[in-house]
Design a protein around this nucleic acid. Structure first.
Lengths: 198, 198
DNA sequence: ACGGAAGTGGAAGACACCCTCCACTTCGAC
DNA sequence: GTCGAAGTGGAGGGTGTCTTCCACTTCCGT
């Protein structure tokens, strides 16, 4: 690949990343190209379809995501690690409007993504088991609850990123409080979210 | 209005209600007309714009919504009333995909809606005050927290309505647990959601 | 410096959407 | 039954998508 082409490619990815983060995935390809200072043809030469552009842009994010989980999973204090995972994932989601949309729509059928995701899930499952063993995490917590948190967090869309992050923090604080194994209240109903979601 | 026209109008509203509930507000006018068994012109004769159709369809829902709040507000047990409001609103939202979308996008500048909404908010505020007074509701609960719950609940979109309702129930259970004035954990950070949202 | 491959921009194709137009049909008071 | 107004369906105007096409430009090995 020629060096000028490489530069353009990088500018496209940068432009797409910023634009997706700020305005979500519903930005037009023309707009992304314009902000990158190239024509749409250049964009389509590198990414034959919009979905591929989305994939490229969020591959890095996903990597950051899973490595965050893996790191937290090694925390000697399992409950602290658990909290950190929830907090970090939600904050990343809150800061980037395209982030969760990308995972919900474009990614489900991508191989390397599934692989990374699985690895992250396994690491998180281990963390959950340890946190339960220490008695800090309520025993009826399931992995579906993380999905629940992320979906709920995804609903927090406001005008400004700051407001979204603030709302997200408050949401997470409420969740974590509920996830603690304290006074034995009637626990939430069981739920087969994973089955329902396929 | 002629009787055949009235019939058509009713079929349009019914069709729109079902379709919005099932697939959200992004259904095309053509599709709504098709399901109602009429041409688009008939639809546009009754509802000059898509927004007006949305308004008509959800006016009834909004009414049910506010009357539910008002009824719960008169519960002698303030905490029970509080819980019922949260549970009912979230369930309505979970059962109808268009419901919350309608309020977030189409309604903000409608007069009777604002009026109803204000009345509901006042009723709810009274309920909150009473629930705090009985010591069951945590004192730092704010009205913004209801918005937070509804936004979070709005993020729960799944393939089937049943799965969404189940997820919503679990979410609400977690929230209500956190909203109870029990063991004094560090409370969530304060938050000016209302200001940020305008 | 030159020639061809790689790269490029903007116009335009294909499609979906909201909405308008108008020739045609149907109702219902007389 | 007649007739005018009310009602109707589907074509198509305008706009916004994603994507393709192609004449033109730029790079870089020779």
């Amino acid at each position: 690949m020629r060096v000028d082409a490489r530069q353009n490619r990088e500018r496209i990815v940068a432009s797409a990343r910023e634009t997706f983060a700020a305005d979500g995935l519903d930005v037009s390809m023309t707009e992304i190209a314009r902000r990158a200072g190239v024509g749409v043809a250049t964009l389509y030469r590198r990414f034959p379809t919009k979905e591929e552009l989305v994939r490229e842009v969020f591959a890095e994010q996903l990597e950051a995501c899973t490595s965050e989980v893996s790191r937290a999973a090694e925390d000697p204090d399992a409950w602290r690690g658990f909290c950190r995972v929830v907090e970090k994932l939600c904050e990343m989601q809150a800061r980037d409007r395209g982030f969760s949309a990308a995972f919900l729509t474009a990614f489900p059928d991508t191989v390397p993504v599934d692989e990374l995701r699985t690895r992250a899930e396994e690491a998180f499952a281990g963390l959950v088991a340890r946190a339960k063993a220490t008695g800090r995490l309520r025993p009826d917590f399931t992995l579906d609850d993380l999905t629940l948190v992320l979906m709920a967090n995804n609903g927090l869309v406001t005008e400004s990123v700051d407001a979204t992050v603030a709302a997200s923090r408050r949401l997470v604080a409420y969740f974590l409080q509920s996830f603690q194994a304290r006074d034995p209240l009637p626990p939430p109903v069981r739920l087969g979210l994973r089955d329902a979601l396929g």
